[in-house]
């Protein structure tokens, strides 16, 4: 009984701030303290959002954005993983690649947008490239450090049992580096999502959540802007939670250790 009420208490405590915010929002809008142009009331916004989804195909824009993130993330994380693995496994590869990698990494991702647009035009390609770059860095760095921190003891064990190359990588290096790689993946998910917004706002197009928000600004459509931002927030949260959940399931042995 005590445990259940403890659980409910925990859940309620996470809702305290949202409820307070909602109340304040209701009070300042219905009391006329702010103009409805700048902040529509929660009720108005809710009606608008429903209309947006039902009549104006907002869901399609969400799907377009999700597709961009998915492609960018997949390209960036797969290449980043391989790149990090290569630098982690080979000191020679690290010596050759790492200095250039770290110099290039100093350029903020948004800084690449003009160059990539000039090369590729205002097409879908530069948006995906920008998201890939965002996904690439965290997973490269975390895979690299994960591979490098595989303990000497495990490496020795592999040597004792005659594990070579691929088998050694598959059976010892990757499982040992796995938690670090997972951290890289969840960071990459977050970065991809953040850079999606930059890609959609700076490389103009007609679809995607970012362009809807931009459209809302141009038309001074405050409900559209706010709905867009809230959607982006919740989708980001959903992605992060999903990534964490998957990581927990995959990381079975260690999850048990944490519990005990």
């Amino acid at each position: 009984m005590i445990q259940i009420s403890e659980n409910i208490k925990n859940r309620l405590s996470t809702l305290v701030i949202p409820i307070v915010l909602l109340l304040v929002w209701q009070i300042v809008t219905s009391g006329g303290y702010v103009s409805s142009h700048f902040l529509p009331s929660p009720g108005t916004l809710f009606h608008y959002t429903v209309k947006l989804f039902v009549e104006q195909g907002f869901l399609l824009h969400i799907l377009v954005s999700l597709k961009r993130v998915l492609f960018g993330f997949l390209i960036g994380s797969v290449t980043g993983f391989l790149f990090g693995l290569l630098m982690g496994l080979s000191k020679t590869a690290e010596k050759i690649l790492a200095p250039t990698f770290h110099v290039i990494r100093q350029v903020p991702i948004i800084g690449w947008i003009p160059l990539i647009v000039m090369w590729c035009g205002m097409t879908e390609l530069p948006r995906i490239i920008i998201i890939s770059i965002a996904a690439f860095y965290p997973i490269t760095l975390n895979t690299f450090s994960g591979v490098r921190s595989v303990s000497k003891e495990y490496i020795e064990l592999g040597a004792v049992y005659g594990y070579k190359r691929l088998k050694f990588i598959r059976k010892i290096v990757l499982p040992a580096a796995f938690p670090s790689i997972l951290t890289g993946i969840s960071l990459s998910v977050g970065m991809s999502w953040a850079m999606l917004m930059a890609a959609e706002l700076f490389i103009e197009t007609f679809d995607g959540i970012g362009t809807r928000i931009q459209l809302g600004r141009e038309k001074f459509n405050m409900p559209l802007v706010i709905t867009g931002i809230i959607t982006v927030g919740f989708l980001g949260l959903a992605m992060t939670l999903t990534a964490e959940k998957i990581a927990k399931v995959l990381d079975r042995g260690r999850a048990i250790r944490k519990e005990s």
């Binding site: 003891e153 495990y154 064990l157 040597a159 004792v160 049992y161 005659g162 010892i172 499982p175 040992a176 796995f178 990381d251 079975r252 042995g253 260690r254 250790r257």
Partner: peptide, 27 residues
Amino acid sequence: GPGLNRGIVFQDHRLLPWLTVGENVAF
């Protein structure tokens, strides 16, 4: 070099934490 005609037990058990007991024995 190392070979399967010699087994080794280290001071630390050196079991791989991501494998079950059975999978470790089958290493």
